[in-house]
């Protein structure tokens, strides 16, 4: 017996590791309300580095984009290269400030118009893989955030908070396969559930409760308020494709989201349940 274990030590170790990982997956795939100590500490320790690196990458991206715009100007002003370089540096910086200012102004305008108290937060990281869709923001429990708070931008609903540490929060985007939000067709008031899909395609799917739902390409989808997490009336997206109900009892449609999930930089967190919002 001992010889068997000695001979197959590596194989047994590998099998053991696989069994432990599968068991862990099974346990952690359930909805959890608390992070483990290791997850909590990892998130807190990595947050400052993530904030700094994400900011740096954002700056570099703005700089790279601006290079394309200025290529022709540079050719014409060759002799003023050094001066242009100085101005260029300043321009990029100003452009970045201007863009940020515009975004923040829109956010502030939206924030003052919004019927809910909100907390503004910056995106500091995204999930490393290509299967899930979540972001990490730079506000956490200290800013009054807690689990299940809805996250929005001026253009539409973004998702909800799933995990919170003292200084950061993880936001499950609507695009995530585990995400679900009550939605309705603004024109016909047909209701359904807006779902994300694994392996982000950039689009959402809405599953209607009725197979007779009258839905057309171009219809606007807004949150229904059902489910109790998201307030009613927030823009979710526009129907891009209707999938006919074949044998099933439900009908699906592909929805192009209103929020620009690819370029999320600042978001607002609704830090109080909406008045009268939420249902079963």
């Amino acid at each position: 017996m001992a010889r068997f274990f000695r001979r197959n030590a590596r194989l047994l170790a590998a099998v053991g590791v696989v069994v432990v990982l599968v068991a862990l997956m099974n346990v952690t795939s359930q909805e959890r309300h608390h992070l483990t100590y290791i997850e909590q500490k990892t998130a807190e320790l990595m947050a400052p580095a993530q904030r700094w690196t994400y900011g740096l990458a954002s700056g570099i991206r703005a700089w790279v984009l601006s290079l394309g715009e200025l290529r022709s100007i540079r050719a014409d002003n060759n002799r003023l290269k050094e001066t242009v370089a100085d101005y260029e540096q300043l321009r990029v910086q100003l452009e970045e400030y201007r863009a940020e200012n515009e975004r923040l102004k829109a956010l502030l305008e939206f924030k003052t118009q919004a019927a809910y108290p909100t907390v503004a937060a910056r995106v500091i990281a995204r999930n490393p893989d290509s299967w899930f869709s979540q972001i990490i923001i730079d506000k956490g429990r200290r800013a009054g955030l807690s689990q299940d708070m809805p996250v929005i931008t001026p253009s539409g609903l973004v998702g909800k908070i799933t995990k919170v540490t003292e200084t950061t929060a993880t936001v499950l985007l609507l695009l995530d396969p585990e995400s679900g939000a009550g939605g309705l067709v603004e024109r016909t008031r047909d209701t359904g559930v807006v779902l994300g899909q694994a392996g982000a395609t950039g689009n959402l799917r809405i599953k209607f409760f009725s197979r007779d739902a009258k839905i057309e390409v171009g219809d606007d989808i807004v949150s229904s308020g059902l489910g109790g997490v998201f307030p009613a009336g927030l823009p979710i997206g526009r129907v891009a494709q209707v999938e006919p109900a074949e044998f099933g009892l439900v009908q699906y449609a592909e929805v192009r989201p209103s929020a620009d999930f690819m370029h999320l930089e600042e978001v607002l967190v609704i830090n109080q349940p909406p008045a009268g919002g939420g249902g079963p």
């Binding site: 432990v20 990982l21 599968v22 068991a23 997956m25 346990v27 997850e39």
Partner: peptide, 18 residues
């Protein structure tokens, strides 16, 4: 580590990356 960053399905990426 990737699982910890994702905070979901702990073990999924551990298994596949292994």
């Amino acid at each position: 580590l990737e699982d910890l960053f994702s905070g979901r399905f702990i073990g999924l990426f551990g298994l596949t990356r292994m």
